[in-house]
Nucleic acid binder design. Structure first.
Lengths: 350, 350
DNA sequence: GTTTGGCACTCCAGATTCAGGAGTGCCAAC
DNA sequence: GTTGGCACTCCTGAATCTGGAGTGCCAAAC
């Protein structure tokens, strides 16, 4: 339905959107005529604006204000009008310099990624750490903490460490622990977590094991240790929302920060991004976030063929899509390379 | 100098402070007279208020507004006027129910503590995790991640896990790793980190070691893995600041959230708390935080004689000290017990 | 001498009014 | 189809006004 827009209408819509993104003020017909490349009178522009409003692409806060783009307009803008360039040299340089942290384990890199995303985009950066269950197990270890408490430590392929406390009925000696560890690592190393779980159950039912009380116990403990952990979500640069005039309203801000603290809705959104692939753009109401007026741009990072997690940016709908999209895209690819085992060192070219 | 306040002045000051805490509005003389227990005319109260203002305990926003307590008044209030009760039954119950997480490792407990502090106090909860260097080493492990990358995993006495990526010059076989691990654990287990560091250096200089290339390497790797990590600070419930009328100003809010994101100043404050002991109260400018008008109440949690970290609450200077102080105090003691090794189970009595 | 009622004074908060300006919509002319 | 003109709308910010809450001070009462 927006396909039947002629060139002129598109040009004007684009100008309005970009103007609004830059100023946060409703855009009037006169402002557009002053735009270079538009040789029309304000009256003509008004005619076009009027059509665009009927198409649901523009709305006016009140009779005598200018026009403001609707979510739909932004959607049309990113789908059709916007040609996304590549990341700026300066941004690229900053990323390449600051992201490959010396001796940075995966979680440090991810946290820093979140900061970088925020600092480059001037919006808030979000990073969803790899879902534990989506990973390949590298190493499993039980450490005695004292008494009957064991700390189960699981290390994934990419060096992400999860730990969980388990309690045992009777104390286990260090020697037994070592035997358990060896057995479990032999059994499970290199398997994806989903497979690990399957294998554990399978093994528990096998005859060999039911005879060996210790190994049986090992299996049960591992199963406990595998219990789902809450997803790790980093959000950095929330304070950038204070810079946006459309959020000067305190009630609005409160809603936003509440949403950030609860994380639930955001996680749901990021899960959707993870299920999809590549760059995802959610505009305004498409985000399903309770506080409206926000957009989210995400991209999946991966290790080879396996998707690991999601990085992205959250900001006002009135967002500088043109610059943010390449940042998210480039960063996701960089993170993928940094986490891909054996490529810790800075890649020469992308 | 505030010692020469007579009973009546104290009573009035107390009433003003508590009224202001409850309403966030400047308190007038008439409001005080309505207070039960005060049988004075507004005029008399005004005389007293005038004295209190001269003593620097009250200030008036403008001629015809009521009075507002100064930082100094709050200080006098918590030092002298306030008699701190114990935590309410309801709060106690909630803490005992929700804090001893099933299978919760230390970091989960600490994060949950932060949430609980916020939810009980209605301000923001802060938790400084144990400084890595202040801890006793329970276990040290190297996991091969692929290529020449090793993940060093250090577990402290209280089940807090730190990990750090280290790179080696040449690949190390699994057998060698095991040997290294055994050697290091025998050498270092049960030592406080400061001691660990010392022992490593000592050992590196010993003759036996220089002969054994592998062990020498193990020592060097451990030293890398021990490098200082950034302090872990949880702040939960930042959104509560939106409920405080004195922070309805956007510029102010922005400053506050920036301070939370940067954490530096807050860490400094918490370090001071850790150096001291027991309940610490920082009022307004005493916090040295850039955004003024905030107070912080902290308490140290410990394991036996060793201080581990700090928990606390941050909110507006106009804070319900009477209820917050017992919350912080009780929670700190509860956390201490939960983390004290071997006492994971819920203690029957405090 | 402490307490109190009275009174003039101050100053804020909110309502009201007003003028200017930016923008629109429509129409008739080009 | 495009444009200039014009009446109309509605927001914004400044200015004004009023009522109320509160103070400070003084003289009278206790």
């Amino acid at each position: 339905m927006t396909g039947n827009l002629n060139d002129r209408s598109r040009q004007i819509l684009k100008a309005i959107i970009e103007n609004y993104i830059a100023t946060a003020e409703p855009v009037g017909s006169r402002t557009i005529t002053r735009q270079q490349g538009v040789n029309l009178s304000p009256a003509s522009v008004r005619n076009v604006m009027s059509e665009l409003e009927e198409l649901g692409l523009l709305s006016s806060p009140h009779t005598s204000a200018g026009r403001v783009p609707t979510d739909r307009a932004y959607r049309f803008y990113v789908n059709t009008l916007l040609k996304v360039g590549s990341v700026s040299d300066d941004h690229e340089e900053q990323l390449l310099e600051r992201l490959p942290l010396q001796g940075g384990d995966a979680s440090r890199i991810l946290r820093e990624t979140s900061r970088m995303l925020s600092s480059l985009s001037r919006y808030a950066g979000i990073v969803l750490a790899p879902r534990f269950t989506e990973n390949v197990l590298r190493h499993l270890e039980f450490v005695k903490l004292g008494g009957k408490r064991l700390l189960a430590i699981l290390v994934t392929e990419h060096g992400i460490v999860h730990n969980k406390l388990v309690e045992v009925q009777e104390e286990i000696s260090s020697e037994e622990l070592v035997r358990m560890s060896n057995y479990l690592n032999t059994l499970l190393q290199g398997l994806p977590m989903t497979e690990v779980r399957r294998r554990l159950i399978e093994q528990m039912q096998s005859d060999k094991i039911t005879c060996d009380a210790l190994l049986d116990r090992a299996l049960r403990l591992s199963k406990q240790a595998l219990a789902e952990t809450e997803a790790d979500l980093f959000i950095e640069g929330q304070a950038t929302f204070f810079n946006q005039p459309e959020f000067s309203d305190t009630a609005r801000m409160k809603e936003i920060f509440r949403a950030f603290e609860e994380k639930g809705q955001l996680l749901e959104l990021l899960d959707r991004s993870l299920a999809a692939d590549g760059i995802q753009i959610f505009i305004g109401s498409e985000t399903n976030l309770a506080p409206g007026g926000m957009s989210v741009i995400t991209s999946v990072y991966r290790s080879g063929a396996r998707k690991l997690g999601v990085i992205g940016i959250i900001g006002p709908t009135r967002m500088g899509y043109a610059s943010v999209i390449p940042i998210v895209d480039y960063t996701a690819r960089l993170v993928s390379r940094l986490l891909h085992s054996g490529e810790q060192r800075l890649p020469a070219v992308m």
